[in-house]
Design a protein around this nucleic acid. Structure first.
Lengths: 164, 164
DNA sequence: CTTAATTTGGAACAAATTTCTATTTTATTA
DNA sequence: TAATAAAATAGAAATTTGTTCCAAATTAAG
């Protein structure tokens, strides 16, 4: 499709019902052909093509991704790990964030309200691999005050769908 | 690409380094051409094409998705809502799950260990819209015992990358 | 109502995917 | 170790899809 590593601008973009229709379809299946999208929305290929291009450039569409099933690649254990830092100044926060970004086991890191400062989602093979991560990677950070691990028993719903 | 709504089987599939290389690339950019992938991995198009097809059919690649930036479509508030049920028998659990699946605001629902039974991730416009969801949708379920809302202050990391 | 700006349809073109066949590589067995 | 079978690969041909172009239609502004 389009998206040849062109930098997306932050131009605001008003999305009408046709744009939303396109997003709805592409969220579910990014491999739909422009012709098929056009067919479903009763348009021709050109407007669909142009609208997708604009949404890519505006950053509405951030990425096209192949979604891999963790269970099929032996990364079946998901753990939510809650973290509080000892010190909360800017420098310490930046350092923590930088190190978290480098941990490939961490698929998500949220700065949150409440008792803890951060929630990280860790995707690993099994409990052994989690312990390895918890002790030798997370445990080596020097600004940690308190952590709590919550284990995911089953995934009921997981979607990227934010346009309806 | 491939993936013309063919049913994926659950055939186990051994993934070698070439498959992993393909997944690595497609996770980051599903629009990469087979030629480019082949170029980067020093292969020709056919093996890359066949390997992708096999991984689609085996369910390793679950989906190709356009990732939409929630901020660009006015869904900037993310809330983690923790839930315990009154009754935990199979029937009640199924009912709860069924209703959660229908809430478009809920992008994720995990059955978890610890104090609460479920964590749901809710993606909305603002606090008004969250209140609306919390009171009129979630609050209308009849099996809820206790809930807690944790608000996401900022997203540090969010990836779908599980192959490295 | 008239004009300007934007959006759209449909056809022509370029580029990608998909298929096919011959060849090479890997694995198996004698 | 050599011979054979099975699987994977390269390269080119066929097909499908993405992209561009321009004229027509629609919308917005004066």
């Amino acid at each position: 499709m389009i998206s040849k590593k062109e930098h997306h601008t932050d131009t605001p973009l008003h999305l009408d019902e046709k744009d939303m229709g396109i997003l709805r379809l592409l969220q579910q299946d990014a491999k739909m052909t422009i012709r098929d999208i056009a067919g479903q929305l009763n348009l021709s290929t050109t407007p669909v093509y142009e609208r997708i291009r604009k949404m890519e450039q505006a950053g509405v569409i951030k990425q096209y991704a192949a979604i891999v099933d963790p269970r099929k690649i032996d990364k079946s254990l998901t753990v939510l790990c809650y973290i509080t830092l000892k010190e909360h100044n800017k420098k310490c926060g930046k350092k923590f964030i930088q190190e978290i970004l480098n941990f490939t086991e961490v698929t998500e890191c949220l700065n949150i309200s409440g008792e803890f400062d951060f929630m990280i989602k860790v995707q690993v093979k099994d409990m052994d691999e989690y312990r390895e991560f918890y002790v030798n990677k997370l445990g080596e950070l020097d600004n940690l005050s308190h952590t709590q691990s919550i284990f995911v028993i089953s995934v009921i719903k997981a979607t990227h769908q934010v346009v309806f």
